[in-house]
Amino acid sequence: MLEIKNLHATVGGKEILKGIDLTVRPGEVHALMGQNGAGKSTLSNVLVGHPAYTVTEGSVTYNGKDLLAMSPEERANEGLFLSFQQPVEIPGVPMNYFMRAAYNAKRKHLGLEPISSGDFVKLMREKRKIVELDSKLTSRSVNEGFSGGEKKRNEIFQMAILEPSFCILDETDSGLDVDALRIVAEGFNQLRKPDTSAIVITHYQRLLDYIKPDVVHVLINGRIVRTGGPELALEIENQGFDWIKNEE
């Protein structure tokens, strides 16, 4: 469903992605690992169309369509969702108002009428339970004053509402305590449909204990230098990245 070919991208005039090839089929979970600054978040940002990043070469096909030709909102409405590494705070925009706008944008894209406020309240309540998100948080401004962990939980809550078909989780585990990690990861698994695909970016095996990857990639200096099965993540957990680099 997602096919990345020879993708090169720059930010601030500097080339960060130097030829990425990656194919994710329906229902697959791919883990993406790699040292700080390797370009993992850059890849997620490029995929969701962040305007600060420029694609200089290569292509991305999503469900048969040219992903790079779509606006960020089109990509989102076509089912692409990014759980941000650092979710932004938006003072003055209430969480429930924001989510309703997003939900209705998707409905509009599907040619459906906006949801009634009663039904939306019900939907929020139901989805909040899945990630055990405090109702106080959904009545506040988007992410404003949320703790690091609460922000991550809120990302998965939004995913629960929007039911994307392709999820990118960028270090969703960082900032979560042990219990929260379990709740959020199990929530994610519960929300996944059989054909939902995901790219899971993480530094740690503990997340992959819950969200089991089919394929593991290692990204170093803007390139995928190794691809393997779940055991690759365990090797990295034990030995770091140096051995891969030395083999290069």
Partner: peptide, 28 residues
């Protein structure tokens, strides 16, 4: 705020609506 605008667009909200939400928030 560009990052806030982008965050909203990533959730499917159009650029115009995202701008509107930020302006409303500002005046509120």
């Amino acid at each position: 705020n560009d990052e806030a605008l982008f965050y909203m667009r990533q959730r499917g909200i159009s650029q115009a609506d995202a701008r509107l939400l930020l302006k409303q928030a500002f005046a509120s």
